[in-house]
Simulated scan of single mutants.
Amino acid sequence: MSMIGEYMRLAPHDLDVALADPESIRDLIDELWDLEDAGSEPDARLMDVDKAWHGLAFVLERAGVPTAVVHGDAQVPRSDDWGYGPPSWLSVERVGELSAALAELDADAVVGAVPGAALVEAEVYPLGMWADGDCKDYLIGHLKRLADFFAEAADAGMGMLVWID
């Protein structure tokens, strides 16, 4: 089973609902993913970075960007395990801050500055992937998508849920 980094951006009221009743939002997320799996258009509020989450956290930390981009700031209170622990959340303000930090990055340069050997040595998930030089394109693509996702959330004044499933 793979560990997938997932995100849901939420309007402030919906974020308040998620923090008060996380399982109701989890049910909505499951319904939205099921609809997408059945062929419906993807819901723009949801995104995943596949197995790149740990590699992204590693390269972002080296670039001086808070790993809250990948892990959130704080666990959602009273939440159950959503796969590999409870979800975390980011406030509207924090999404704006992180979006600005991501916008300043050159994804090619940030990822290019970290040799695959450093990912291997640090035992970054998924193990065995990082020795291959093609992994840089994988991380760059996901970093660019993540920066766009954060920018759209910041522009719309949204907060976020973040979890590993």
Rank of each mutant, 00 (worst) to 15 (best):
V95K: 00
M129E: 11
A122D: 10
A18L: 05
A52N: 03
D137H: 04
E152C: 09
G83P: 05
P22I: 04
V59H: 11
L119N: 06
A153H: 01
E31S: 14
D16N: 13
S79T: 06
D81V: 06
A103W: 02
L143P: 04
V120F: 10
L15F: 01
P77G: 06
D30I: 10
D48G: 11
I29P: 04
M47H: 10
R145F: 06
K144H: 07
P86I: 09
P12L: 01
D148M: 12
G64L: 06
E6P: 00
R9Y: 07
L161C: 07
E61K: 12
V70D: 04
D34R: 13
D48T: 09
W89E: 14
L119M: 13
D14Y: 00
D48S: 14
E123M: 12
W130F: 14
D165F: 03
A18N: 09
A38Y: 04
E61S: 14
G133R: 13
L119E: 01
T67K: 04
F149D: 05
A153C: 08
A100W: 00
A113G: 10
P86D: 12
I164D: 15
D34Q: 15
D50G: 12
D80N: 11
V110W: 07
L102F: 06
G141V: 05
W82S: 00
E121Y: 02
Y7I: 03
L127D: 14
G96H: 07
L119A: 13
L161I: 07
S2G: 07
S2D: 11
A57R: 02
L35W: 08
Y138G: 09
V65H: 02
R145E: 12
D16W: 03
G128E: 03
E23P: 08
G112Q: 06
I4K: 13
K136T: 09
P77R: 01
A113W: 11
M160L: 11
Y7S: 01
A131L: 13
